[in-house]
Amino acid sequence: MGLDFSVVPGWMDTILLGVVWTIAITVSAAALSFVGGILLAVIALYAPWIVRQPFRLFAWLFMGTPLLLQLFLIYFGLIQIGIDLPAFVAGVVGLGLHFAVYNSELIQTAIIAVDTGQMEAARTLGLSRTQALRKVVVPQAVRDVIPPIGNNMIALLKDSALVSVIGVTELTLSAQLAIGRTYRPFEFYLVAAVCYYVINLGMEAVLRRIERRIALSR
């Protein structure tokens, strides 16, 4: 029994819907991981000791355990304490926080690397430390780590397949649904792979545009 792609067109609606969900979850989780990464970095570097500790535990939890387990915890575990998140939201929260921790590591290093003269110049003008961080230090730090953060976001796209296990009908789960009916795993997994690849290309194009824009101000 060879490959037979003739069954694919009939399932294209399902697959494309899966693509839409994958993009939606990736973009939402990427946004969360970006903003969360900045907040976590600022907390790790500047918050009082007592505030930092719970966040350190949180970071350790998200870096030291499998993402799959984190998704299970958020989706199935939180229900037990009365937090019943829809699968999509649980997926975004899990992926977003997981990558926020990784982004935060990058951003912390970049914040430390920003010349101290920048903070001094901002403070000298009368800005508070928070204002100086927000307007001067953090934007420069983030700008410096856009390429590695971009790599994290591409990893995020690939890891978004994991949310299929909590029932979000994104691309991987859509392919599995088609396979369940047609018994054509090779064809549909290949189609899914091509779709991931195309989304990936799209993301890289967006990242390159952002990097080019940043390069203009260097």
């Binding site: 920048q118 001094e120 110049a121 901002a122 000298t124 009368g126 307007k135 934007p139 420069q140 101000s217």
Partner: peptide
């Protein structure tokens, strides 16, 4: 508040590289 009244110029300029000349001047 006090620093709003005391301008300072540094040896190494310390301009904000992510902002244009205009934005450097008007940010504060």
């Amino acid at each position: 508040e006090m620093r709003e009244h005391i301008g300072m110029v540094f040896q190494h300029f310390n301009l904000f590289p992510h902002l244009t000349v205009r934005e450097n001047v008007t940010m504060a």
